[in-house]
Design a protein around this nucleic acid. Sequence first.
DNA 1: TCAGGAGTATACCGATCTGTATAGTGAGCC
DNA 2: GGCTCACTATACAGATCGGTATACTCCTGA
Lengths: 191, 191
Amino acid sequence: MTPAARRVLEAAARLFYERGIHAVGVDLIAAEAGVTKKTLYDRFGSKEQIVVEYLADRDERWRAFLAQCLDAAQPVSAARVLAVFDASRAWSAKNSSKGCSMVNAHAEISDPAHPAYPIITGQKEWMLALFTDLAGDIAPGGAVQLGRTLMLLHEGALVAHGLHIFPDPISHAREQAQTLLATTGGAAAKR
Amino acid sequence: MTPAARRVLEAAARLFYERGIHAVGVDLIAAEAGVTKKTLYDRFGSKEQIVVEYLADRDERWRAFLAQCLDAAQPVSAARVLAVFDASRAWSAKNSSKGCSMVNAHAEISDPAHPAYPIITGQKEWMLALFTDLAGDIAPGGAVQLGRTLMLLHEGALVAHGLHIFPDPISHAREQAQTLLATTGGAAAKR
DNA sequence: TCAGGAGTATACCGATCTGTATAGTGAGCC
DNA sequence: GGCTCACTATACAGATCGGTATACTCCTGA
């Protein structure tokens, strides 16, 4: 990726997240990136493609960040679940003051045929699979159930964080997850 | 409100929710409502005002629907909490296949100075107050804590419902709320 | 009867939208 | 020297954006 293309993607990412995808035009993106529209179209071909790469890049970075956080966590499933919430809190503090970018993008992209759609649903499916996987070690019989509950707590926390309805909702969700794991997993949580 | 104005608001509500606010122009709204732009502007004055009335109307209808559901529920706080989830499930089934309209609008309206902003945050604050109020009867010492947890479960369920990541997330959230109330409230929940 | 409100039809405004065209500059590379 | 690639500058296309203007019809109520 050329330097100009990177600047375009960075400008687009910031503008799309802060103002919304449909509210931002390519002229503004080009201007903010210090690039002409010609360059922008030479590199990306269309605004839609910039949207796709914006979401794909953000998805990739989040997964890499989370993987790094999980590597640093203890190899115990209960601790790893809590590490996911810790990762979300750290990530949201500096990247997501307006809530989850995938959820926000989903509000604007309704057509399932849109090339960005699978990126959005893909991340959520991946997160659910992660929670369910970890839940399987804690409560083998109720992995699906527990995984879904963790997913709800996590998604709710991201929304609450973006809406600023009460302070530090992600930490609150983490605590709730902790007590949930303690009561659900029992001795398995301490394995 | 004149018949034409009502048709405009109905068309705008449907289009805004399904396609996003910024993605829908006034020409389309007028055409779908079977109304000229002249009439539209005579009644509402601006697109922004239509957005405000769309959200205010939806907020009002949701509160009225919820109040009706709560009136039909047993006068026991634990039952009433579950009634909120039941109301959400019924409401979402026919009005919110794409998730919470307030959350979706928040993705597009970032400016706190926008006249629609207080409607969005107002509904969420009201819901949190409702949960906290009901939680106060169940666990007087931890009303704030419990209210926030219920809020997270509820918001998470709405997001999960809109994203279709697993079937019937609102019922799942309801069940989790139920076990949460049983363990937190203890005997008080059965009062 | 007639005034006024609700509505239609149509044309227009300047601005902005996504996307394309032509022309040219500068650096690195064989 | 020549060639390619990344990039700039500028202008423009066709469509749509929010919003306004003029001129008209229909219906209701005093």
